[in-house]
Design a protein around this nucleic acid. Structure first.
Length: 720
DNA sequence: AACAAGACTTGGAAAAATTTTC
DNA sequence: GAAAATTTTTCCAAGTCTTGTT
């Protein structure tokens, strides 16, 4: 309802450019998915300062590399072999494969597994520092020379439980296959999927199909008459039993499972050990798409070895098939790809791949290349922006639409928006925007409202350049709501054009570029005298700005409301006590020395009362009762010095409480993770951490430290 | 050139692990 | 010392973009 647009910006710390629109419009209001009925109109208008762009004074990547090399190599890998990059490639593969016996992968010696365990702590790639080597052949089409792995592990076969499905109140005998499907449904009973007609219909079609040659087929005709509650109860019971296993035993079970999986967790790539990412075949179940997916509820069937294609080295041993009586579908030796296995998804027909983990050299190199490409865009961006501004006035429809779309992609960080099929959720991106997704608010504000990736709502009311406004209006003229705004523009056409502006450029690079450049600019303004915690909060706030730019949202946490209430109560209590303390101070001060202490009243939450015979549930209930009970009056006698100290500490506590509450409210529907993992060049963060003396572990969790190992030696003056 | 298949990145939710609070 | 809250990891769906195929 309100209009979030550009707002006044602070005086930039560094020289500003004359162009007022260098940065993307990050001050968007956050809106939520039109999730069920949860009213959400109150989406908060988060605002924050935005800096003007600054002149780039980048350190060349060469310098960073040199810098990195100078650093002490603290990595615990064996000898510090610094291979000559040119010679290394070909030789390394063979030599090391001979040396490094493929213990975890080789079937013949399963007893000696523990052997390599010390090398796989933390790192996903056995300490291979690819970033210390030259660019060399990194980008060539061939991805590996030798490849050895154990393929995948399968979920356990279905074990029938014999708990009946009731139909019209009577138990129905089901085949194991049908029972499994019924059980998939029972497992979802507590979700709102089961309320959705599409989900019900798809499930029931598949369920009925599974019954076709059994007697139950004549009985079970309507979903409404199926009662899954007994199966549901059975599942709940199992869940509880699992939960109730003593901690020690749980730990043991976990360890046993780890031993069983061990050999699947690593692959040997050119003789180097690398962690495998997703070595588990997805278990069967009901397909849960996002948003209004037409296929939700369909049975995603079990994948068998026959469905799987294995990609291994020519001379490598073919991984043994873990399922008795089965064999792999296909064995291939495709060296221009990085996947180890793949199969066809039974629902979408798309391919599912087994990849190496995020910390592997394959993934790291392409991540690095992605950010380098985005950095390269900063050398072209001014030119490109001039170009599309020019394009707004183009005579031809396609160039005009293209230039207008480029503005949206650049300024609003929209995704490009490929075509989607009838059998997918109806979501859009820039090129697939339809007339129904835009509203025009004179003089030049557009309101975009559509479902984007994952059916997350994009809602943004933003002032745009006059030409853009007029163009968009023009493109919508005489079109029905369901028609494409950019009807002459295709994604391929757009990307082909981008290639002509910069080698390797495509629409998604703008998102990476804008996210990273925004963070870089924002955190360069870190308040000088902040303590560690303040710096971290500050960083997270800037991270939040990026998340808002990219429209990274999450569902409102279930307990948000109650947690806020709880905090609010605390604020009220603390406030009351502070007021009382101040009253006491006044009284003493006014008395001019005639009294030196006062009676003060503090209202405290009631303390819960536990008795020996209470179980966990009763204790929890008692705790709740006490928290909700009226506050208890407590009398305290205080002298002036005591009061002064208390006022100070209580004020601080109150301020912190209020600040925490604000942060919680501001963050309730933003997801920081996605940008941190995918969009923000880790070198920006590493450099900032070094400069501001923030331990990197406070920003990157363990997996991110591994994923971004290549960025850890970035010098503190790195700029994106 | 249009379309489909293939390969890889990006995405939020749920589960699991860890930390904080009481 | 357990429950609650928060953070991290896992899961798998859903995008982007390139590469075949017709």
């Amino acid at each position: 309802m309100t209009t979030a647009t550009k707002r006044a910006r602070p005086i930039p710390a560094i020289e500003s450019s004359d162009e007022d629109d260098e940065l993307p419009l990050i001050n968007r209001r956050v809106s939520k998915k039109p999730r069920v009925s949860l009213s959400s109109a109150s989406a908060s208008n988060s605002t924050s300062a935005q800096t003007k762009s600054r002149l780039k004074q980048r350190s060349s990547s060469d310098r960073v590399l040199a810098d990195a090399r100078r650093q002490r190599r603290q990595n615990g890998t064996t000898t510090v072999v610094r291979p000559n990059p040119a010679a290394a490639k070909g030789r390394r593969a063979k030599k090391e494969e001979a040396k490094l016996e493929p213990i975890p992968v080789e079937e013949k010696k399963p007893k000696r597994e523990g052997q390599s365990s010390s090398s796989d702590q933390g790192k996903d790639n056995g300490g291979y520092r690819w970033w210390d080597e030259g660019e060399g052949e990194r980008n060539s089409g061939i991805k590996w020379t030798t490849l050895l792995h154990n393929a995948v592990i399968f979920p356990p076969e279905y074990e029938p439980h014999g708990i009946p499905l009731l139909y019209n109140g009577k138990a129905v005998e089901l085949s194991a296959e049908s029972e499994e499907i019924a059980t998939f449904y029972a497992a979802k009973l507590a979700t709102d999927y089961v309320q959705k007609p599409t989900f019900q219909r798809n499930f029931f079609d598949d369920f009925r199909h599974s019954l076709r040659s059994t007697s139950a087929h004549r009985i079970i005709k309507k979903l409404e008459l199926c009662d899954f509650s007994r199966i549901h109860a059975h599942l709940e019971k199992k869940k509880q039993e699992k939960k109730d296993i003593p901690a020690a035993e749980k730990k043991k079970l976990r360890e046993e499972e780890a031993v069983r999986c061990k050999k699947y967790t690593v692959a040997l790539v050119d003789g180097r050990e690398e962690k495998v990412g997703n070595f588990r075949v997805e278990p069967p179940g009901l397909f849960l798409g996002r948003g209004e997916h037409p296929k939700m509820g369909k049975v995603k069937s079990r994948i068998y070895p026959e469905d799987i294609t294995i990609n291994v080295g020519h001379d490598a041993e073919i991984p043994p098939c873990p399922l008795e009586g089965h064999k792999w579908g296909k064995i291939i030796h495709k060296r221009d790809v990085t996947w180890l296995c793949f199969w066809k998804d039974t629902i979408t027909g798309g391919s599912k791949y087994v990849w190496l983990a995020a910390g592997s050299a394959f993934k790291g190199m392409s991540d690095h290349a992605k950010f380098e490409k985005a950095r390269r865009l900063s050398q072209y961006i001014e030119q490109i922006r001039r170009d599309y501004r020019q394009g707004w006035k183009a005579k031809g429809k396609e160039p005009k639409q293209r230039a207008t779309a480029m503005y949206l992609i650049d300024k609003l960080a929209l995704r490009v928006g490929n075509e989607k099929g009838e059998d997918e959720a109806d979501t859009v991106g820039c090129c697939s925007l339809r007339v129904e997704h835009i509203k025009f608010v004179p003089p030049r504000t557009i309101e975009l409202d559509f479902l984007g990736k994952d059916s997350i709502r994009y809602f943004n009311s933003v002032q745009v350049e006059k030409e853009v406004y007029e163009n968009l209006k023009l493109f919508c003229r005489n079109k029905k709501p369901g028609e494409d705004i950019f009807h002459r523009l295709t994604v391929t056409g757009l990307n082909d054009y981008l290639k002509s502006l910069m080698d390797g450029l495509s629409a998604k690079v703008f998102r990476t570029y804008n996210a990273s450049v925004t963070l870089d600019n924002l955190i360069s303004n870190t308040p000088a005298r902040s303590d560690l915690l303040e710096k971290i909060v500050f960083y997270n706030q800037q991270n939040k700005e990026v998340a808002i730019l990219c429209n990274h949202q999450r569902a409102l946490p279930k307990a948000h409301g109650s947690q806020m209430e709880k905090m609010d109560k605390k604020v009220v209590d603390t406030q009351q006590w502070l007021t009382e303390l101040k009253r006491g101070r006044n009284k003493i001060n006014k008395s001019k020395g005639s009294i030196d202490s006062v009676d003060l009243i503090q209202w405290m939450p009631e303390k819960p009362v536990f008795t020996e015979d209470m179980d966990d549930k009763e204790r929890a209930a008692e705790r709740k009762r006490a928290a909700a009970a009226p506050r208890v009056k407590t009398a305290r006698v205080k002298k002036l010095p005591q009061i002064e100290t208390a006022i100070k500490s209580v004020s601080e506590r109150l301020a912190k409480l209020k600040a925490d509450m604000q942060v919680k409210e501001d963050m309730k529907t933003v997801a920081l993770g996605t940008s941190k993992i995918n969009y923000l060049d880790p070198r920006i963060t590493v450099a900032w951490c070094k400069k501001r003396e923030v331990p990197i572990e406070r920003i990157f969790a363990k997996t991110l430290l591994v994923k971004f190992a290549w960025a850890m030696e970035t010098s503190e003056d790195f700029r994106f």
